[in-house]
């Protein structure tokens, strides 16, 4: 299994070199096995969450009839004449879910704003330090970035300076995000390379072999070894 694990990981990245049979094999395997695993994992979750709760010590838990009804109603998607039943439960599930989660957005926005506003003035009580100045700068940047989105049309002219500074803040934030994302992605490959070197059994030779094959292919395309009929587009 470690060999397959390493092969799939590096075969997936080999698409950066070019579309190739190893990549296509890895893609099909990941999609197929992934779909199968998701299906089984969800059946297992349904078993633990619903079936085992419905029949407890030989007694029926009537409250669990609701998920059964909802679940069966979802299956109506396969019966054209009962498609409205599926639509009804979909809408019910979506709206209830949104009703629970939706308030978190404004609540988080509010609590974060209050937190920044309170922390901004910490330098008055705690004195000037890197920490308190950082909190002040964070609050100012937060307000400027928000002004970029909030003040348009009627309020555009008097807030021009704020919005321009807000754009700078957003650009800095974007650059920082891109940099950390790139570093994070390199770390992922790095971790796997070290895993192949330090893991038991060592599987470093698999990506090394791939690397050599691609190096050869770069100078002498390997598709020349097989007929023109099996040519692969790069």
């Amino acid at each position: 299994m470690p060999y397959l694990n390493t092969f799939i990981f590096f075969a997936a990245y080999s698409v950066l070199y070019k579309n190739n049979p190893m990549y296509r094999l890895a893609q099909s395997l990941v999609v197929g096995v992934g779909a199968g695993y998701l299906l089984v994992a969800n059946i297992n979750a349904f078993n633990r969450g619903v079936i085992m709760n419905t029949f407890v010590n030989g007694n029926i838990n009537w409250a669990m009839l609701l998920p059964w009804i909802l679940g069966l109603a979802y299956l109506c998607i396969f019966i054209p004449r009962l498609i409205n039943v599926y639509r009804a439960v979909s809408i019910l599930t979506l709206t209830v879910g949104m009703g629970v989660v939706l308030p978190y957005g404004p609540a988080l926005f509010w609590t974060v704003s209050v937190g920044y506003a309170q922390n901004a003035l910490n330098f008055l009580s705690e004195g000037l330090s890197v920490s308190t100045l950082g909190q002040l700068l964070t609050a100012v940047c937060y307000a400027l970035a928000l002004s970029y989105f909030f003040f348009t049309d009627y309020a555009a002219k008097p807030t021009t300076a704020f919005r321009k500074l807000g754009r700078v803040v957003l650009l800095v934030y974007t650059a920082m995000t891109i940099t950390t994302t790139a570093l994070g992605k390199i770390n992922l490959v790095q971790w796997k390379v070290l895993d192949t070197l330090q893991g038991v059994p060592a599987t470093w030779w698999i990506p090394a072999l791939m690397f050599i094959v691609m190096l050869i292919d770069n100078f002498y395309p390997l598709r020349n070894l097989i007929g023109k009929g099996s040519e692969v587009s790069s």
């Binding site: 922390n119 950390t180 994302t181």
Partner: peptide
């Protein structure tokens, strides 16, 4: 989180909700 999660998770740290963060390797 990962290195690339830091930029958005930091919003909750600087606001005081997360009491600490460990990001990436």
């Amino acid at each position: 989180g990962g290195t690339d999660s830091a930029s958005y998770l930091a919003l909750s740290y600087t606001a005081g909700y997360f009491k600490g963060m460990i990001m990436g390797q």
